[in-house]
C-alpha cells in the first residue's frame, strides 16, 4: 500500500475515534452539570469537560462562559476550534477523500454522510435539543462507519491501518480522561457509598459507555480504584488501556505479515503491552496514578511517531 494512503487511513481512524469520544464526553457532562449541587453536581462540569478534551487552553484563548451553550458549541460546531467534532469529521473526510479508493463505498458513505449531517448544523447550535440530536447523529454515524468497515472492507492493510489509528487514539482519550479526573480516583478520605464524587466517577464510566460493564465485572458499588482498574487493566473493556494496546499490537502483527517487516513501532507496542500485562492497580496507585498516566500518554505519543516513521507516512 502507498505510504501516503496508509497515513491517511490511520488518521481517518484517529479522527473518527476522537469525534466519537467528544460526543460521549459532552453527553456525560450534560448529565453531570444538570445535577443539584447537593448531589455533587458541579458548577465547573464544563471546565472539567474542556480539560478532559485537552482544550482548556484553546478555550481560554477564545474566551467564553463555562456553560453548556458556549462550551457545547465550542466542542461541537465551532469551525475555529481545530479539535471540534465538526473539524474532526472534516479532517476524517478529507483524509478519506484523499484515499477514496482504499475504502469501500459503504465506509466512504458513512464518513461522507456524517460530514454532510454535521454541515447541516452550520456553525451555531440553537438549543439543547439541537445539541442532543447532533450528538446522537454523530454517535450513530461513527457506529455506522465501524459497521461498514467491519462488514465490507477487505481484511488487509487498509482496514488494519484504520483500526490501528483508532486504537492509538482510543488509548490516548481514555488516558487523558482518567488523568483529568485522577484526583477524584485517589483513595484517601474514602467514604464508601455516599461520596459526593460518586457522580464524577459514574460520569467517567458513562463517557466510555462502561457503567453497566462496571457492575457486571465487579458486582459492587462504584469505587474509584475499581474505576481505574477497569479502564486501565480490564481486558473485557474495549476502551481500557490494556485492550487498546492488545489491539495495537495485533494490528501491527497483521501489518507485518503482509510486509514481513517489524520495526520500532512494534518494539514500543510490545513493551507497552507487556508493562500493562504485568501491572496491578495497587502498584499503579503506589507509584502514583497521575505519574503513570502522564508516562503512558507520552509513550503513546512516541508510539504514534514510531508508526509514522516505520510506515513512512
Amino acid at each position: 500500500m502507498l505510504s501516503r494512503t496508509a497515513g491517511n487511513l490511520y488518521w481517518v481512524g484517529r479522527y473518527i475515534e476522537r469525534a466519537d469520544f467528544l460526543s460521549r464526553l459532552i453527553e456525560a457532562t450534560l448529565r453531570l452539570a444538570a445535577l443539584p449541587s447537593s448531589y455533587g453536581g458541579m458548577t465547573n462540569a464544563w471546565e472539567s469537560a474542556l480539560e478532559a478534551a485537552w482544550m482548556a487552553d484553546a478555550y481560554a484563548a477564545r474566551g467564553g462562559a463555562f456553560d453548556e451553550a458556549s462550551v457545547g458549541e465550542f466542542l461541537t460546531v465551532d469551525p475555529a476550534n481545530p479539535s471540534s467534532i465538526r473539524r474532526c469529521l472534516e479532517a476524517a473526510r478529507a483524509n478519506a477523500r484523499a484515499v477514496r479508493t482504499a475504502l469501500t463505498l459503504e465506509a466512504w458513505e458513512a464518513i461522507n454522510g456524517a460530514w454532510l449531517d454535521v454541515q447541516k448544523y452550520g456553525t451555531r447550535l440553537e438549543d439543547r435539543d439541537q445539541l442532543g440530536t447532533m450528538l446522537e447523529t454523530v454517535k450513530a454515524s461513527m457506529l455506522a462507519f465501524d459497521g461498514a468497515a467491519h462488514r465490507t472492507m477487505l481484511r488487509g492493510d487498509a482496514y488494519w491501518f484504520i483500526m490501528l489509528g483508532s486504537a492509538v487514539e482510543r488509548a490516548d482519550n481514555t488516558a487523558r480522561l482518567l488523568d483529568v479526573k485522577y484526583h477524584l480516583l485517589l483513595p484517601h478520605g474514602e467514604r464508601v457509598g455516599g461520596s459526593l464524587d460518586y457522580f464524577q466517577w459514574t460520569t467517567i464510566l458513562r463517557t466510555v459507555s462502561a457503567l453497566t460493564a462496571y457492575r457486571w465485572v465487579y458486582r459492587d458499588t462504584v469505587k474509584p480504584w475499581l474505576v481505574a482498574d477497569l479502564l486501565i487493566l480490564n481486558r473485557q473493556i474495549p476502551r481500557s488501556l490494556v485492550s487498546c494496546y492488545e489491539e495495537i499490537l495485533h494490528r501491527l502483527d497483521q501489518l507485518s505479515t503482509s510486509s514481513a517487516r517489524r520495526g520500532p513501532a512494534h518494539r514500543l507496542a510490545s513493551a507497552g503491552c507487556a508493562a500493562l500485562d504485568q501491572a496491578k492497580i495497587d502498584g499503579i496507585y503506589s507509584r502514583g496514578l497521575h505519574e503513570f498516566l502522564r508516562e503512558f500518554i507520552a509513550d503513546n505519543n512516541r508510539l504514534g511517531a514510531a508508526i509514522a516513521e516505520q510506515y513512512l507516512f
Binding site: 500500500m1 502507498l2 505510504s3 484515499v99 510486509s259
Partner: peptide, 21 residues
C-alpha cells in the same frame, strides 16, 4: 494505485512508488 507526484520517485532510471512495504 491512485498516486500523487510525491508518492513516486526515480532511482536507477526506474520509477518507484513509496509503499508501506
Amino acid at each position: 494505485e491512485l498516486v500523487e507526484g510525491s508518492d513516486l520517485f526515480v532511482r536507477d532510471a526506474r520509477v518507484f512508488m513509496r509503499t508501506t512495504e
